[in-house]
Design a protein around this nucleic acid. Structure first.
Lengths: 337, 337
DNA sequence: TTTATTTACTACAACGTTGTAGCAGTATTT
DNA sequence: AAATACTGCTACAACGTTGTAGTAAATAAA
């Protein structure tokens, strides 16, 4: 069922039918309603490929993520999908699996009109961003969320990572920690560095000397991370507080503590970034910094659609900062209280 | 950058260039390599819309899901994406939010060539499937996974739900439970009914009389579910075992038990379907039936691509059944052991 | 009454591909 | 030597839309 057939049914030229369907002022009301009725009856749907080709608009965006088995990116997708749905856009999903080469390959696929815009959260090791500059140069709007490319001139939606780092660390200090370890995932990602800076700044304000050996960079291999954390917690001068930048590192810490018979929170306190709803039921319940993931998705989507529809150029340099929340639970309970 | 421009650069007709790029036998090796080199140099990428329009193939599939903030659907997407990536397909994602009207609206969008095939897991209340039959009638291959439309003649990928129901219930009985409640989410979904049948069958084999009041249908409203479960656990003849068909209902059960000061597993044992990796760290750790979610995604994708490429018609009536695993943890520990 | 304007439509050329048909020139067969 | 087949290319018509230009007929202004 295409325009030509529909036009034949109606004894009209297919131009007329096309215009009627797009509610053009050139067409009389009578004809419009006749066309609309027939289109409904025959369940006519315009071919999106033809339309896209002609209009140079795909009504589709791409979302590029490191992974999807994750309590943060799940609600982000949810937020993106909700705004995309409202605006009549379709959402393509691509996973980098934390690999920059995949990220590059994906951006290559998106260069020639497949999408009208891109939402991206960088892979762990992405250092060079020329593949993204290339996309921008082709005129495809790109919006970053959470794991942003700091030096790119593009809109970004992030949370107050520096501040969250300060809050988390200060909380541990207030609960009595003297030697606080930080478990990071990447030296490239700006969010990690901001959180690290917040941590360092909180130590300084509380006159705690920084100890570089307490800052540990993990990666995406759970077994290696387990060993690294184990080594950390077995040291003679082991930390009495752990600040994990992602939930899986906090869970690994729980595992290591179980093996080493260290009690949380008595021997060691744990705080982590997490968006999981089960943290309340962990043993012990886990104190978290929780990011507004759904809102980040929606916000990033909204900016992208504004850019696509070129209503305002205002957003181009915009950086939106949303607030994370510290949720205090038992894993950071003060000793003897 | 399009074919015409590329052809001009090479002093060739654009037909020749097109054929060279698709490695046609009509073109000499010399010309092919010249064209390929130039295409690389100028970073030429064919316009997917034009190509799709011409070939009647979008190289895109749609994945329709109830939700994405979920430890089951996350890995499913992961599996789908991995096989799609291998086969050179793009993945559109749509969320129904458990609403059949959304499901219908989404299928309408996919009728006219936007996708070459559909993977779907039904919304909770989807009873009528005429919108899906319509898709099938248009010749668009459709493959179901997990939440299937039982009476549709289409390939399905599921887990051994009846058997899992038997296993879970038998496990509770073996651990000493006499009065086992089942928390379901839907009366429409066949997977829930199969699990329920497994439960009933296990009761029968163990000569436990079935009690309809112990089978509770929850919905997607957490507050209402909490109340329903609370009512269930406050009854004079309260259950000593709970079999939850989804993780969130098990977590609600944990909450209710905390409020009512019921001890797990001493007073009441809990088992649930779940794909969350944190179940090991819940308090107490939670016994689960875990589905091979990633594999389901891959399997469903593989069947869909076979259908799209029409190599084998064999799959059409195929139903793939994968095995779930029972992972015993503390929430179903035998009393006094 | 003539000329300008508006209304409601049609014709047609794009958009960027791909596949079929055609056409020289060379190689092979009879 | 003539007929046939093959090789390597070009020309052109689709695919299903949309937007621009064009055109009758009806209405308004000169």
């Amino acid at each position: 069922m295409n325009l030509k057939q529909l036009a034949k049914e109606l004894n009209l030229s297919f131009s007329t039918v096309s215009k009627a369907l797009s509610d053009s002022h050139e067409i009389s009301k009578a004809t419009k309603s006749k066309v609309l009725a027939k289109a409904q009856e025959l369940n006519y749907q315009a071919n999106p490929m033809a339309s896209s080709l002609r209009k140079h608009l795909s009504k589709t965006i791409a979302v590029i993520l490191p992974e999807v088995v994750n309590d943060f990116f799940g609600p982000v997708i949810n937020g993106i999908e909700s705004i995309a749905h409202e605006k009549g856009y379709h959402v393509l999903i691509y996973l980098t699996h934390e690999d920059m080469q995949n990220e590059i390959a994906i951006t290559r696929l998106l260069q020639n009109g497949r999408v009208d815009g891109i939402l991206i959260s960088l892979a762990e090791q992405t250092s060079d961003t020329s593949h993204l500059e290339m996309i921008k140069d082709k005129g495809i709007p790109i919006v970053f969320f959470d794991r942003i490319a700091e030096h790119m001139d593009a809109p970004k939606v992030i949370t107050d990572d520096y501040h969250s780092g300060v809050k988390a660390t200060t909380h541990l200090i207030e609960q009595g920690c003297k030697r606080i370890a930080l478990l990071s995932i990447s030296q490239n990602l700006s969010i990690c560095n901001y959180r690290l800076n917040g941590y360092l700044s909180a130590l300084k304000s509380n006159k705690i000397k920084k100890d570089n050996s307490l800052v540990v960079f993990c990666n995406s291999c759970p077994d290696r991370n387990y060993d690294v954390i184990k080594k950390l917690l077995k040291r003679k001068n082991r930390p009495d507080g752990v600040f994990a930048l992602v939930e899986k590192l906090a869970i690994s810490t729980y595992s290591v503590c179980k093996e080493l018979k260290l009690r949380i929170p008595e021997d060691i306190k744990v705080i982590t970034f997490s968006n999981s709803y089960t943290v309340d039921w962990l043993n012990p319940s886990l104190t978290t910094i929780t990011q507004p993931a759904y809102e980040m998705g929606r916000e990033a989507g909204e900016i992208l659609f504004t850019l696509i529809e070129k209503k305002e150029y205002y957003y181009l340099q915009e950086q939106i900062v949303l607030k994370s929340k510290l949720m205090e639970r038992n894993s950071t309970q003060k000793n003897g209280s």
